[in-house]
């Protein structure tokens, strides 16, 4: 058993209003909300986004703590953005330190909010549901050759297997370390070379897993999307319409406020 930390975006099954929404509604809402964050260029607008995010987390029956602990890589990325912005503005842009700090905070916060919105989707939606929703939304594009079912199945399987592969990688890294592998020494070339003892076994494992999975899926009668039915067919309920309208109105309100109040 491995006790690798909660991998990013792992589904948290809780009974909540947001969990119960149709994945299509959630996907659409995500697109809209990410758009809203994208156009937020002032601190006030960003504060509104933060409030929105808080409301979503509350609505999903999750806590800030849980969301943040399952998004460590995002936080590192935000930290990097912060440092980069400060350095860029202060040292190269010759801005005042206070301005540079403010700028850095703003950009890293915006990035974090954006990513956390995106993260809420897999946190509140079972992978298979998510891929079903994606498939349904992509289906109109199938006539132009977009492989809707295949894309959705791929994402569903990736979501299921990423945590497993992280565990495998963790194990291989430890195994090679205990054989005296040095991952932290030497020049660039040597460091890159040092990863071969990890990458080669990992690829062998991935290929073998893929092979086994394909066989198991075939044994259970999988032959692509044709003729496949659903245990829980996606059902657009009243709440989904309500949620979509709510999100749309919030977005319109936000955009109008931004325009009129020049936020």
């Amino acid at each position: 058993m491995s006790f690798a930390s909660l991998s990013m975006g792992q589904y948290v099954p809780v009974a909540s209003a947001i969990h119960a929404l149709d994945p299509r509604a959630k996907l659409l809402a995500l697109l809209v909300l990410m758009g809203v964050v994208f156009v937020s260029t002032s601190p006030w607008a960003l504060a509104c986004c933060l409030l929105l995010l808080g409301a979503c987390i509350r609505g999903a029956g999750l806590s800030w703590r849980l969301v943040l602990s399952s998004s460590r890589p995002i936080l590192y990325l935000a930290l990097f953005t912060f440092v980069f912005n400060v350095v860029a503005h202060f040292f190269w842009g010759e801005a005042l330190l206070s301005d540079a700090l403010a700028e850095g905070t703003f950009f890293s916060l915006r990035l974090t909010i954006l990513m956390l919105f995106a993260l809420l989707l897999p946190l509140t939606t079972a992978p298979l549901e998510l891929s079903d929703g994606l498939e349904a939304l992509l289906l109109p594009f199938a006539r132009w050759g977009v492989p809707a079912h295949e894309c959705a199945m791929m994402i569903g399987i990736a979501l299921r297997f990423i945590p497993l592969l992280m565990e495998e990688m963790d194990r291989i890294v430890k195994a090679q370390l205990s054989r005296g592998a040095r991952l932290d020494q030497g020049g660039l070339l040597r460091r890159v070379m040092a990863f071969f003892p990890i990458l080669i076994p990992l690829f062998v494992i991935i290929f073998r897993r893929a092979d086994e999975l394909a066989l198991a899926m075939e044994a259970r009668g999988y032959r692509g999307g044709k003729g496949r039915t659903r245990r829980r067919p996606l059902q657009w309920k009243k709440n989904d319409t309500r949620a979509t309208i709510l999100v749309m109105s919030v977005a319109v309100l936000f955009l109008s406020l931004r325009r009129w109040l020049r936020l």
Binding site: L128, R160, R209, E212, L213, A216, G221, R228, R231
Partner: peptide, 18 residues
């Protein structure tokens, strides 16, 4: 490597869905 879905019920449903 033979469990396809992330939820118990969803995985059992895989074959009859197919």
């Amino acid at each position: 490597s033979q469990i396809v879905a992330s939820l118990v019920e969803d995985d059992v449903a895989f074959a009859p869905e197919n």
